[in-house]
Nucleic acid binder design. Structure first.
Lengths: 258, 258
DNA sequence: CGGGTCGTTGACTCGAATCAATATAGGTGG
DNA sequence: CCACCTATATTGATTCGAGTCAACGACCCG
């Protein structure tokens, strides 16, 4: 590794963000958009794009990988599995979210690609070193983790205090919100109808919500018969009436990214 | 690494930790024990002890208080309440845990004293300023928040994938663990029997676990009839067989503090 | 010592789980 | 390209755990 001398500070002035950053769909709403220009350039210098197929584990028991990433496209599911076979998806990470556990030892939690992913990766060592040099990176990360914490707690409310109907409606609403505005768009004329590709199977939805897959099916059938959503094929689905969907969901502060 | 400012470290050198810190039961296991001596002294300089009666809100909708604290004794419950009246306790904070939301706007989450509390408080502004000057404070905080995040996700597993029996057993186990070793004691000869004062009412336990209070009662009765726990009065309870209790609880990585 | 809150227990209901049978999508090889 | 095949999704019938409603009992306060 280069000594932290002249190269870093001097050549930063004329360094420019690489084209992939300038064209990055999540730049504005991700960690890189929340830090100073100099830090952003330094971060860009250690980043590389990576494409990961659906189903692959990013980290977990098998791979305690000390490497971090920002999601450019796709969805990551965070799974806890217990020895007796039960498992629960305890969180979803969407484009612009951060994935990884800087400073912390790996736990029983694992992260898997729910869909094909495009990641902007940072090697663990380099990222942690950069955090030390650039306080604003550390601060931005802290804010983001605090956002994750809020969402984890909203998730707990969802699991503890709602009916199957509300659970399914809320999850679909969150997915629709997070996947239809890849960059944190201002909510202009929010369209009533939107169509998208569901990043999760019925089984995975059930694992998110602490339900059985049959129950998820039934609730989706119900929402379909109420004219709130439509589905075709296994993954394509459409929100026909966003307001009605929101109606079915309790509180939900979950949608807002960190 | 200690290039910046001999002056600072020198003037701090003759400062000493106040007596209340030296005698503090949670010093070693809390944030202050995870930072450098200089930072610890600076933190001590802006801290003050505060006693809060059970039931009082620490922050929340009513009081978006920008002030932070470390719990010296007592238990804090984190509550989300929705307009329709439903509410869920989404986390408990025990002695040595950090309470507050630096850098973040207040949310719908509120924190309340479950028992009488003894807090070591920091004014929000001063603490945030100190974070800027002392990277190790910020780093320690980040680690702690990551620990909270893990626990929040364990909580989600508990709510989503377990029976009423397991929920109650797990919560009692966590409470017993966290309240019987105020400082992070090494697990020596873990006693089979321990007695303590339950920090939560049956109703609050139910709110933690997404259950009804009658269900909590029934499960406690069951554990009692199995000879695993004993209760007397409303708040006093005793673990008669720690192993059996652990047996009833699934995974639970929840007990370990950040 | 009385009153009210909190806890316990019982009888019954209901929502989601479970068990089981099809139906459909979407990929594969002929 | 089509027919087949398997994983996934849907629907139905039934069971069971937790919720609900209700009564009673115990603790703790003044």
């Amino acid at each position: 590794m280069k000594t932290p001398g002249e190269i870093r500070s001097q050549s930063h002035a004329d360094m420019t963000l690489p084209p992939r950053c300038l064209a990055c769909p999540v730049q504005a709403s991700s960690l890189c958009g929340a830090i100073g220009e100099e830090a952003a350039k330094a971060l860009a210098a250690i980043s590389h794009r990576m494409r990961i197929p659906a189903g692959r584990a990013i980290y977990g028991a098998t791979q305690p990988a000390r490497s971090f990433a920002i999601i450019v496209s796709g969805v990551v599911k965070l799974v806890t599995a217990k020895p007796d076979g039960r498992q629960q998806i305890v969180g979803l990470q969407f484009p612009s979210d951060f994935v990884g556990r800087p400073l912390m030892e790996p736990t029983s939690l694992s992260a898997e690609a729910a869909t094909t992913l495009e990641l902007c990766c940072f090697s663990g060592r380099a990222f942690e070193a950069l955090m030390r040099d650039h306080p604003d990176i550390e601060r931005a990360l802290l804010k983001r983790i605090l956002g994750d914490l809020d969402r984890a707690r909203d998730w707990a409310f969802l699991l503890g205090r709602t009916t199957a109907q509300e659970k399914v409606a809320t999850l679909l609403h969150v997915i629709a919100e997070r996947l239809t505005r890849p960059p944190s768009h201002e909510m202009k004329d929010e369209p009533r109808r939107i169509g998208l590709s569901l990043p999760l199977s019925r089984m995975e939805i059930a694992e998110c919500l602490g339900l059985r897959l049959e129950t998820v099916c039934r609730q989706m059938t119900r929402l379909r018969s109420q004219g709130i959503i439509a589905t075709s094929g296994r993954r394509r689905f459409e929100v026909l009436d966003m307001d009605a969907l929101k109606q079915c969901a309790p509180g939900l502060a979950m949608s807002t990214p960190a």
